[in-house]
Design a protein around this nucleic acid. Structure first.
Lengths: 223, 223
DNA sequence: ACATACTTGACCAAATCGGTCAATACATTT
DNA sequence: AAATGTATTGACCGATTTGGTCAAGTATGT
């Protein structure tokens, strides 16, 4: 990632991740205008002064986060190295390719637990300070994502009348719903003081839904 | 609804709805601690002083909103009059009963567009001023809802190995996903300055997903 | 020892916060 | 029309928080 924020990017990986995650969490929870730089710095384990040293001001930091997130979301469907045929494209079976993306998403969710809520809220940002910039990034973001997944997919394996796009959409909402479900559970669990989500259980439940979908949407000869 | 806030409840219906909706919107967007009473009052078209006149303080107002929302959510699956057999229970077919609930949800979504985001965010509230009270209300809320829907349902109509609970869950996430999808679209549409969601399109898309599910999860003789 | 880059926390003016209250407007009763 | 009680307002308050600055200090490399 080319950037003018060298001082930030020369930081240790652990420190960078701590700062990014703190930003995702606080901006994601309160939105741009109500998020406090002080709170972010505290959560990242650095001083407020340092944050301003890295990014000059609040706006720059927020937009850096959003671009960073958009970049990662793009990488999710593109090839990791950015050129040539995306790796997951080698597989033409819908559910095999889904398995690939699932693992990537999982790694991302563990690396940046609050990125998804941040990226979900950002488009609704109304602060004039940033909302123009957000829209520009959004346009690039919307075009990619779900569209490319279906390229070169063996759609003939689906039963007649089934739209693979709808199936993909359904499973996407399903995975989001499951994560949210377990977030609620972790909140209600007094033993889990960190409110960490149990991703093993998320995955196994998700797999159940995938299996149900596949069993009934695929032609029998391809099960 | 029995209440100590008579001065509020004696208001005209239009005024009450405006105040409730403003509260849902602002609390839902920023959370309890960062939500500004001033902003809520402005959006509701009243003065800040009036809001304090009705509810004494911020906390009371927030908890009133949450109880109000919980009450409506309960009504969604219960009978409207609160006693006797819920109306929708008369129908034992999964998708017929779903149709019933769908219409109720739709009316609710039009009456209180921001209630769902409010109620989705509230459980994650960390402000010590309110979080204890939220947990208490949550426990009552969690038990109801999705569980009762399946009572007396003709589960034999589903193909073997299909869990109706999972189907219901899937369709719930689906409807939420569709609404969110159209919210994004309305944001990107420069002609739609009010960012109003087109519920006709929401419904028709939702119906497509329901049809797909039903066609493949129901035994053929019940289609 | 020197220079450079990083890090901090006290500090600032400005804005915002929840909440109060005297004044006013309105409606109803006498 | 006078009196009474209720709604409604917006200016106002002290307290807190805000984004941002900066001088002073630490760490690092040469």
């Amino acid at each position: 990632m080319i950037s003018i924020y060298e001082s930030f990017e020369n930081l240790s990986e652990a420190k960078k991740q701590a700062i990014l995650n703190a930003g995702f969490r606080v901006f994601g929870e309160y939105g741009y205008s109500k998020a406090s730089v002080e709170e972010i710095a505290k959560e990242a384990g650095i001083s407020k002064g340092s944050l301003f040293y890295y990014f000059k001001n609040k706006r720059n930091f927020f937009l850096y986060l959003y671009k960073y997130a958009a970049h990662l979301m793009k990488q999710l469907v593109d090839s990791p190295d950015g050129n040539g045929i995306p790796k997951y494209m080698e597989k033409t079976d819908f559910f095999e390719r889904l398995e690939d993306v699932k693992e990537r998403k999982m790694k991302l969710a563990i690396l940046h637990p609050y990125m998804s809520s941040f990226i979900k809220k950002a488009p609704f940002e109304t602060s004039q300070e940033v909302y123009k910039d957000i829209q520009i990034i959004n346009q690039r973001l919307a075009k990619e994502r779900i569209g490319d997944f279906l390229k070169n997919i063996d759609i003939y394996k689906f039963k007649d009348g089934i739209d693979p796009y709808m199936v993909l959409q359904l499973l996407t909402w399903c995975s989001e719903g499951i994560v949210h479900h377990f977030q609620l559970i972790s909140l209600a669990d007094p033993d889990n003081k960190q409110n960490e989500v149990d991703y093993d259980r998320v995955l196994s439940l998700y797999d159940q839904y995938v299996a149900m979908i596949k069993n009934n949407f695929y032609k029998e000869e391809y099960l």
